[in-house]
């Protein structure tokens, strides 16, 4: 069973969301997702300033195995992207919840955080896969 930190929120499409306060959240993909994908070779990130809506495909994680779309787990504006991933996509494998973060979003409606899964809900959702 992979690590699913209890302080984060999750989407069934395997993104995690960390509330940084001040309406900013950080988004990445879960340890489970990176395990399924295998070694990451390229990560294509959204543009800073881009408006994203929940469910939009906004990034691509390309691994040795497959290219996989990353979906916006929440609606808002992209305010920062993890440029480290340009040269070191393997950070997504080695530290999925830390240095492997992908982008930050200034969220439109903080209430939307409540509709995301908690750790237990996400754990159940991957059991069903």
């Amino acid at each position: 069973m992979s690590n699913i930190p209890s302080e984060l929120k999750y989407a069934t499409s395997h993104e995690w969301v960390r509330n940084e306060g001040n309406g900013i959240v950080t988004v990445g993909i879960t340890e489970h997702a990176q395990e399924l994908l295998g070694d990451m070779v390229f990560v294509e990130l959204p543009e800073v300033g881009e408006s994203v809506s929940t469910g939009d495909d906004v990034a691509v994680a390309e691994s040795v195995k497959a290219a996989s779309d990353i979906y916006a787990p929440i609606t808002g504006e992209v305010v920062e992207v993890n440029e480290e991933l340009e040269d070191s996509p393997e950070l997504v494998n080695s530290d999925a919840y830390g240095d492997g973060w992908m982008f930050k979003v200034k969220i439109e409606d903080e209430g939307e955080l409540e509709s995301l899964l908690d750790a237990e809900g996400y754990a159940n959702s991957i059991d069903e896969d």
């Binding site: 070779v41 390229f42 294509e44 390309e62 497959a66 290219a67």
Partner: peptide, 10 residues
């Protein structure tokens, strides 16, 4: 074939 930009030929 070689692709020097991003992306993976499959």
């Amino acid at each position: 074939l070689i692709l020097e930009e991003k992306g993976v030929l499959r």
